[in-house]
Simulated assay, not measured.
Amino acid sequence: MQPEKYIDQYRHALLNDVIPFWMKNSPDHESGGFFTCLDREGKVFDTDKFLWLQCRQVWCFAMLYNQVETRQEWLDTALSGADFLQKHGRDARGNWYFSLDSHGNPLMQPHSIFSDCFATMAFGQLYKATGKEEFKNIATGTFYNILKREENPKGIYSKAVPGARPLESFALPMILCNLVLEIESLLEPALVSEVIERGIDTVMNKFYKPELGVILENVSPDGSFSDSFEGRLVNPGHGLESMWFMMDLAERTSDELLAQRAVDIAIQLVEYGWDPVHGGIFYFMDVKGNPPQQLEWDQKLWWVHMETLITLLKGYLHTGDERCAYWFERVHAYTWSHFPDPEYGEWFGYLNRQGEPLLTLKGGKWKGCFHVPRGLFQCWKTLEAIQSKVSLNV
């Protein structure tokens, strides 16, 4: 691999395209927070505010301030979003809502524990940037609340009949593996170790099925396979994203075996999810090859490809596995020839199977200022680390 071929591309896209797009079009200067429903040109087409995306954008600008450059405009953007969240984001019990109207009035109950996850990330980064105790308290208090809800994340908002086909979802244990590293310095070391050990075991031994070569989205509480729509569901992008979380944990603990195992699983997943006809990675698949329940199963999504690029680069950095280099080149070529919008900036999010934009929006209910900038940053820095490693070995 020749990292110097790509470093400027990822850095330039982050700092001169994607971040300026969101800085220009997203802030709500009247009510606070961010507009995330932006059309191709960046014009607001809906003013509802979704907590996932509000928190993620606060995190993004605070992270850039902490790790790239102490630009005051980045910190001010993060602080503005945080102020809106502090005023409007939580119910009386401290749970974070799913959505608000433009003025901050709640629209949808706090049914999603991922609002809490992203709030933890946001205020953890802001504490690093400012040292303000109130941000630390919000981050840690929310994290402890997540752990309390871990066994029953949806609580009273669950639609399932109690006891009827109980299933555990991959999403929460996956994200906890990353979340605990985000706020590690704010937590007791024993708790950090416990969450990490449990997370690695859950991801690698419960949801990953070596006999199938995939990570399942849902399993029975004992880890067994459920032959149902939910139990057969594979989201290759989710599995691939989780593998760079595993690699970060492996780096933290100098666990070379875990790093190599994560690489092996990542290669299995990208080979499994790759569309052999049109290229790109499928959104959803049925592990038995049955028709998926999700009608959007064959779409090609921005975040799936961005997370895959991160995983492949980190895999190459940590192990030197040439399969990572091969697949990085392949996924990079597909991603950069389909998702970036050279006319109006930022990236398209949703392509059909043939790779044509289904929607030209740059942000909506699910796509915001997160996966693209985080991915560009991670790839840029990982490529620099690979370059340094190569230089040392010459």
Rank of each mutant, 00 (worst) to 15 (best):
H238W: 08
Q260H: 15
L257D: 06
Y272T: 01
L240M: 15
I267M: 00
M246E: 13
D264F: 04
L269V: 09
R261M: 04
F245C: 08
L258A: 04
L249D: 00
H238Y: 02
R261C: 00
F245R: 07
W244F: 13
R261Y: 06
M246W: 06
D275G: 03
E271P: 03
E251H: 14
P276F: 03
V270M: 08
E251I: 10
S254G: 12
Y272M: 02
P276K: 07
D255P: 08
D255E: 11
Q268C: 10
M247T: 10
A250L: 11
L258H: 02
V277R: 08
G273W: 00
T253F: 11
I265V: 14
L258W: 01
S242V: 12
L258D: 05
R261Q: 13
V263M: 00
E251K: 14
A250V: 11
L257K: 09
G273N: 09
L240V: 14
T253M: 09
L258K: 01
D275E: 12
V270C: 09
A259V: 03
H278L: 07
S242Q: 10
E241W: 11
L257P: 00
A262K: 07
D255F: 01
D264I: 06
S254C: 15
W244S: 06
W274Q: 08
H278S: 15
G239Y: 09
M246Q: 12
H238C: 07
I267N: 01
R252T: 07
T253A: 10
Q260Y: 13
I265N: 06
E256Y: 08
D264M: 07
S242M: 13
P276Q: 04
Q268P: 00
L240H: 00
E271V: 07
L257T: 05
L258Q: 01
V263G: 01
A259K: 03
E251S: 14
H278G: 06
S254Q: 14
W274M: 11
D275R: 00
Y272N: 02
Y272C: 02
H278W: 13
M247C: 13
E241S: 08
M243C: 14
W244M: 05
L249S: 03
Y272H: 10
A250R: 08
A266T: 13
D264C: 06
E271N: 15
A250F: 03
A266M: 15
D275S: 07
D255C: 11
F245G: 10
G239E: 07
D248E: 15
M247P: 06
V270Q: 01
L257H: 05
S242P: 02
L249I: 15
L257Q: 10
Y272W: 12
P276Y: 06
Q268Y: 05
L258P: 03
S242F: 09
L240A: 05
W244D: 11
L269N: 05
E271H: 09
A250S: 15
D275W: 07
Q260K: 12
M247K: 13
A262V: 06
R252G: 13
V263K: 04
Y272D: 12
D264K: 10
D275A: 03
P276A: 09
A266I: 04
M247A: 12
P276H: 06
M247Y: 11
H238E: 05
Y272V: 07
M246F: 05
R252E: 14
T253S: 14
D275Q: 11
W274L: 04
T253I: 08
D248G: 01
A259S: 09
